[in-house]
Amino acid sequence: MLDILQRLGHKALSRLAAIGRAGQLLLQSLVAAPQPLTMLPLVLKQIYFVGVLSLVIIVVSGGFIGMVLGLQGYTILVDYGSEQAVGQMVALSLVRELAPVVAALLFAGRAGSALTAEIGLMKATEQLASLEMIGVDPLRRIIAPRLWAGFICMPILAIIFAVVGIWGGSLVAVDWLGIYEGSFWANMQQSVDFYDDVVNGIIKAVCFGIVVTWIAVFEGYDCIPTSEGISQATTRTVVYSSLAVLGLDFILTALMFGEL
């Protein structure tokens, strides 16, 4: 019995210690005086790897999810004679919830795991140590650009996801199921408020971006520098960031849409 308690306590303490190290990493990478001239090309390169290369999965997933929403929405609403509301249903679901959350989950799976593996591998092959020996702070040269790139890319990907999804929904509803195009867009425009829905969705995406990128980068930096360690770290990144996104989503949704 005491043994189990001890192990539980040990696990809890080591998690806490990890969170502490993660916080330290974040602070040291971002707060340490940045040199814009050298940082900018590094950040741009990371935006390419983290954002541009994620576009395919975001666009394809967004399109399909939008189409499914249109289809399912139609089949449910048509029973109540309210199939005109499909537009607003697709748009609100995407903009408020699905775009930020699903895009963040996909981002964690594709870009997050890639970041963790890359940084972990750099640690294992002593590249981080040799950077230090040459006198370059790996936190500023390797970690910080990746953090900034993640923060910037996540909202953009979520917005693109939403737009592609709505387009997919319109494809299904208007072109295939015969809903009048005018009422599709008019109803949508009536019920989607820019500040309450779109901006809130973007705020969510920004929060998710921060959390996912931070976890991904930390797990890579903190991992045991063996191949097994890297694979464990990558798994942890995907699992923890997914859970964090979903949990954070609930909190943010309650805060933003609770009163409505």
């Binding site: 903009v95 917005i159 737009v163 709505i166 867009w185 949508m188 820019f194």
Partner: peptide, 12 residues
């Protein structure tokens, strides 16, 4: 995409 969201989707 943001512009589309603003104008076409939310009718801003």
């Amino acid at each position: 995409a943001l512009v589309v969201l603003a104008l076409n989707v939310s009718g801003l």
